[in-house]
Simulated scan of single mutants.
Amino acid sequence: MEWYLKVLKGHYADFNGRARRKEYWMFTLVNVIVSFVLGLVCGLIHVPWLAYIYALAVMVPSIAVAARRLHDVGKSGWFMLISFIPLAGLYLIYVLAQDGEAGNNAYGPNPKRAA
C-alpha cells in the first residue's frame, strides 16, 4: 500500500526520473484491486459515476508511473504508445517487467541505489 500512496502523494504528475519495478507493479496491483472492488460496490448500489471519478483521478498517476518505469529501462515515456498497436502491447508488458539499467542513465540515478 505504501507504493500506491507514494505514487499518488509524492509523484502524482511526475513524469521525470525513474521508477523501480516494485513501485510500478505494486501501484498497478493495488489500482486493479481498488478498481474492481469499487466497480463491484458501485454496481450493487447503482452509482456508477463514483467508479468513473476514481478512474479519472488515477489516470494521470498511472501514466506518470508507467513513463518513469520506461525511463528506468532506458526508454522514452512515449514508448507506451506502442500499446495502441495490436499485439505490440505485449512487448510493452515485457519491457515494463525488465530490470532497470544499472547505474545512472539519461533519465536520472538508479532508484534501487537510492532505496
Rank of each mutant, 00 (worst) to 15 (best):
V7R: 02
W78A: 11
M1G: 05
F84P: 03
G100W: 15
A67I: 13
W49Q: 13
P109D: 15
M1H: 08
L56H: 05
W25D: 03
A67H: 11
F84M: 14
G43E: 05
W78D: 11
K9F: 14
A67P: 03
V47P: 03
F36C: 06
L38K: 02
V58T: 12
N110P: 02
K112H: 14
G10M: 09
A66C: 14
K22G: 09
L5S: 04
S35R: 00
L40C: 05
V58W: 01
I82Q: 09
V30F: 14
Y24F: 15
P111F: 15
C42V: 04
Y4I: 00
K112N: 10
V73Q: 10
K22Y: 11
Y94M: 01
W3V: 01
R69T: 00
Y54Q: 00
V32F: 12
N16D: 11
F36Y: 14
A64V: 00
G108F: 15
Y91I: 06
G74A: 05
R69E: 02
D99Q: 08
L96Y: 08
A102Q: 10
L96E: 03
L56W: 06
R18Q: 07
I82K: 03
V60G: 07
N104Q: 13
A55D: 07
L5E: 06
Y94Q: 04
T28L: 06
A57I: 01
L40K: 15
Q98P: 00
G17Q: 04
T28M: 13
R21W: 10
I33F: 11
D99I: 01
V41Y: 05
N104R: 14
A51H: 07
G43H: 06
G10D: 15
L90A: 12
F15E: 12
H46M: 07
F36G: 13
L40A: 13
G17D: 03
L38S: 02
Y52M: 14
N105P: 07
I82A: 14
R21G: 01
R18N: 06
L40H: 14
K6L: 06
P111Q: 14
V58E: 00
G10V: 03
S62H: 12
F27K: 03
Y54P: 00
V65F: 08
F36W: 09
G108A: 08
I93H: 06
V73G: 04
L56I: 06
V32R: 07
A57W: 05
I63S: 04
V95I: 10
H11P: 01
A13S: 06
L92Y: 12
R20K: 13
R21E: 02
V37P: 07
V37H: 07
S62C: 03
G10R: 11
P48A: 04
N16M: 07
F84E: 09
A67M: 15
L38V: 00
N104G: 10
Y4D: 02
F79H: 13
R21D: 05
L96Q: 02
G77P: 03
W25Y: 13
A114L: 15
L90T: 05
P109A: 14
M26I: 01
E23I: 01
A115W: 08
E101S: 09
N16I: 00
Y54S: 01
Q98V: 00
D72K: 02
W3H: 11
L5P: 01
S83I: 14
R21C: 04
F79Y: 13
G100E: 12
N110S: 02
G74E: 10
L90G: 10
P61V: 02
A115K: 12
G77F: 12
L87Q: 11
G100D: 05
G39I: 00
A97L: 14
Y12H: 10
L96W: 15
